[in-house]
């Protein structure tokens, strides 16, 4: 079955919302025996075909959520479903269509990369044994591990291990991929390749759910984001929606920042200030052209004028709060 066929089969036959969501949860909560609430009334909504960036600082409940989705741990309360089927009841029929990388790769150290994949594939009752060698080779090829396939796993570098983990998730054509920190331990080149791979899978129609605390990489490939903080979802939606919510600022480089600030204030821009010899303000609904015009009319010598969209990182910090401490 090709990815395209998998897509065709999984295409929503009706217009109901649940059919169009690859992952959905309602009031999903996990309280550990210690009493700690790792995931708190989570409402996940991952549309089919999305590349969904699941963001949050360390300890915000991302991995716990992924473990629940995969049926490794059981929720304290709440409902959740993947690919339109309720879990954990339908795990047997849903999970073969889901590829996963959870909390780093894990393989038998004394088996080769290829033998490890063969073992996982043999454990999959839905996999055809006859096509296993070809599928394993393709998965290895896709993550660039062909040359090291025969080496024992224990001799793999961190980056090669991570690649093998991704290869395991790609052993079958999947409709949904759950990737937990897929670029951990990869060199810049490897990070680029993984980003490219996620982008490519997204274009093939695979829904990719990728958790990360590194925002730059998510920003480049994702169509949707969800931001977690201390077990709660603080924001989720498409990237354009997120950008629309954010305040765009203007920055004026000039020899007379104070005068420029006064002009910005007079035009009605929010929070006009002077920082490091530059005038800053929140753009609001005013045309940037009008501002430059007003500055020139007021006799302010403009050396530079920039309209700044916030970086996702700033948005992230504004949502999850500053501070280095991991939560709980």
């Amino acid at each position: 079955m090709s990815v395209a066929e998998a897509q065709a089969r999984s295409a929503p036959s009706d217009a109901s919302a649940s059919a169009e969501l690859a992952i959905e949860s309602a009031a999903l909560t996990k309280r550990f025996r210690s009493g700690q609430v790792a995931v708190d009334t989570l409402e996940l909504r991952v549309p089919r075909g999305a590349v969904y960036g699941f963001l949050g600082p360390n300890g915000s409940g991302k991995t716990t959520t992924i473990r629940m989705l995969l049926g490794l741990i059981f929720p304290t309360s709440g409902r959740y479903s993947m690919l339109g089927a309720a879990l954990p009841a339908s795990a047997g029929s849903v999970l073969p269509r889901v590829g996963a990388l959870v909390e780093g790769p894990a393989f038998h150290p004394y088996l080769s990369g290829r033998a490890n994949l063969a073992r996982l594939d043999a454990a999959d009752l839905t996999a055809t044994g006859r096509t296993a060698p070809r599928r394993i080779d393709e998965a290895l090829e896709r993550v660039g591990l062909t040359a090291a396939a025969g080496k024992r796993y224990r001799h793999y570098s961190l980056g090669m291990r991570q690649r093998l983990g991704i290869a395991a998730a790609l052993l079958q054509p999947r409709e949904l991929l759950l990737l937990d920190e897929p670029t951990n331990g990869l060199d810049p080149q490897g990070t680029r390749e993984v980003r490219h791979l996620i982008h490519q899978l997204g274009r093939e129609g695979v829904t990719v759910f990728v958790s990360s605390h590194l925002l730059a990489e998510v920003e480049q490939v994702c169509t949707h984001v969800g931001v977690m903080s201390t077990g709660r979802m603080v924001w989720q939606g498409s990237l354009p929606e997120l950008a629309a919510q954010q305040r765009v600022r203007v920055r004026v480089t000039t020899s007379d920042p104070q005068a420029a600030r006064d002009v910005l204030a007079r035009l009605g821009l929010g929070e006009p200030t002077v920082v490091d010899g530059e005038a800053l303000a929140v753009l609001g609904s005013i045309d940037p052209e009008r501002i430059v015009e007003a500055l020139v009319e007021a006799g302010v010598g403009v050396r530079g004028f920039v309209v700044e969209k916030p970086r996702l990182e700033d948005v992230f910090v504004s949502l999850t709060g500053e501070g280095f401490d991991v939560s709980g």
Partner: peptide
């Protein structure tokens, strides 16, 4: 111990 249990269970192996 080496973490392969979670991958076996997500294959899924009941």
């Amino acid at each position: 111990n080496i973490g392969t249990l979670r991958y076996l269970l997500t294959v899924p192996v009941s």
